[in-house]
Design a protein around this nucleic acid. Structure first.
Length: 203
DNA sequence: TGGACGATCCCCT
DNA sequence: GGGGATCGTCCAT
């Protein structure tokens, strides 16, 4: 397992502005690769480099927002830059980044990250080691400690944010069908960093 | 009021 | 590669 790049390779921890998230999910999704998902905690921080994402749009039968606004998916319809955290299969949480303007039910599911900082905290939260720390959407949620109370958090001003990191060149970005869904499975809306070992195995 | 099902993971084979 | 765990959400009665 390859962990923690040399400090000279660390990307920028400058926070991305609101405008970054106001674009359509299909544009934001590949642009999120290489960025850092950061959670500040007392006495430290959890930092992971985003290596795998999926885009969801409102006019998409596989999206929670497809049937319109409900109390559950309300956050998806806000303007971009909020966290949408949902609970599924009776035991797992997944985290999304809301995108687009107010009123559009769009988001990008974060499927895998590569730990950069806060490894001990990741381990403590996950009760695991190695790639299985964060190589799946529910795994990384457990590693970061994301649960219901994080739904609706503003990435522009809260203890969770997206930092600039290093944008991934287009030639290193692969795409495929999304994982674990039946509707619109043919849509090539999953994006990941080619060859990165932290990408989830499935697919 | 109830039942079907899900943007998953883990463990067993 | 397959099945079980486990419960919130939504929609149909």
């Amino acid at each position: 397992m390859r962990l923690n790049p040399a400090p000279s390779h660390l990307g920028s921890l400058r926070q991305l502005p609101r405008a970054f998230f106001l674009r359509p999910s299909l544009r934001v999704a590949p642009d999120l690769l290489g960025r850092y998902l950061v959670r500040r905690v007392p006495g430290g921080r959890l930092v992971g480099r985003i290596v795998e994402v999926e885009a969801y749009r409102q006019q998409d039968p596989a999206s929670h927002s497809y049937r319109g606004r409900t109390p559950r998916n309300e956050v998806m319809f806000r303007r971009g830059g909020y966290l949408y955290v949902y609970f599924t299969y009776g035991m797992h949480y997944c985290v999304n980044i809301v995108t687009g303007p107010e009123g559009h039910g769009e988001a990008v599911l974060i499927r895998a990250v590569e730990p950069i900082d806060g490894l001990e905290l990741f381990r403590r939260n996950r009760h695991a080691e190695g790639y299985s720390l964060t190589n799946g959407p529910a795994k990384l949620c457990q590693a970061y400690g994301f649960e219901r109370s994080f739904n609706g958090k503003d990435l522009i001003r809260s203890d969770v944010l997206i930092a600039a990191g290093n944008k991934v060149p287009r030639r290193l970005i692969a795409r495929s069908g999304r994982i674990g869904i039946r509707m619109a499975a043919e849509k090539q809306w999953r994006f990941f960093i080619h060859g990165n070992p932290w990408v989830s195995k499935a697919g």
